[in-house]
Amino acid sequence: MKFIGITGGVGAGKTEILKYLAGREDTKVMLADDIARELSEPGQSCNEKLQELFDGTDVFDEKGKMNRPKAAAIIFKDEARRNGMNEILHPAVKEYVLHVLEQEKEEGRLRYLVLEAALLIEEHYDEICDELWYIYTSEENRRARLKQSRGYSDEKISEMFESQLCENEYRRHCKVVIDNNGTTEETIAQVRTIIENEGENTNG
């Protein structure tokens, strides 16, 4: 089984690629955001610490359920809380991922285990992944997609771009680069080719 980490800038269009991979019988896809959300739920490992972090705000309701948009608005302006949230969630997400990795290795059913994470490189997932894939889309196309799909302003998009790694950094760390500037079909064809070639190399 190969453990693949997938990353790319905001608006790169990773969703369709992940959807294709998740549809394969030999592949399991994990999303770091979904794991973090699950670990933040009432009764889960990070919930109590996060409630302490956001004490004095209305981020959590009386049942301990987090209002994510409110949390996002606060951490956007409050660096201390943003760092605190990262310190709580990132190690917990990594621990969860490592647990699933060990479990899937033992069961031996999968050909690929895939993890998508915005901070894949920053959080040193290259140390546990077999290889990293970078989904490349030009800034111009990403900007157009974010305006259309999420209604973001140019100012908000620029702020988001500035907070992420530059293209050279992604390319430096990632073994595979998938060009997602064309149609979804063209992108999926690239992914299929990579997987087929790897299958031939493994069999050879």
Rank of each mutant, 00 (worst) to 15 (best):
I194S: 00
E162G: 14
I128N: 06
L132H: 03
L115C: 04
A71P: 05
G8R: 04
G5I: 02
R111I: 10
F161H: 12
F3Q: 00
I157P: 05
T27A: 12
Q190V: 09
K156C: 03
E62A: 13
C174F: 04
E167D: 15
E122V: 02
G151E: 01
D154L: 04
N197S: 12
F54C: 05
E87V: 00
V59T: 11
R82T: 08
A36Q: 05
E186H: 06
L89M: 12
R145F: 06
Q51V: 06
G13H: 07
K49P: 05
G9D: 04
G84R: 02
R172G: 02
C46W: 07
A36T: 02
I194E: 09
K65R: 09
D26F: 06
V176A: 00
L113I: 07
D61G: 06
E196M: 08
L21R: 05
S153F: 06
Q148M: 14
K63M: 11
A92H: 02
T15L: 05
D55C: 12
T183A: 10
L39W: 02
C129H: 05
D33G: 10
R142E: 08
G199P: 01
K14H: 03
S153K: 03
A144I: 11
L89A: 02
N86R: 10
R172P: 00
K2M: 06
E16S: 15
R150T: 02
A72K: 15
I178Y: 04
A72M: 11
A92F: 02
N181R: 07
L119T: 13
I6C: 02
L115E: 03
D126Q: 15
N86M: 12
C166R: 14
V29F: 03
V10S: 14
N86S: 13
E131G: 00
G11W: 10
E162F: 07
R111L: 14
D55S: 15
W133N: 05
E79V: 08
E169N: 08
D33P: 03
D55V: 10
R81A: 13
A92P: 00
M66I: 15
T15A: 13
A22C: 03
G84Q: 08
D126Y: 08
E41P: 06
G43K: 12
N168Y: 00
V10L: 08
E16H: 15
D26M: 08
A118F: 01
G5M: 00
R142L: 12
E41W: 01
N168S: 14
I157A: 06
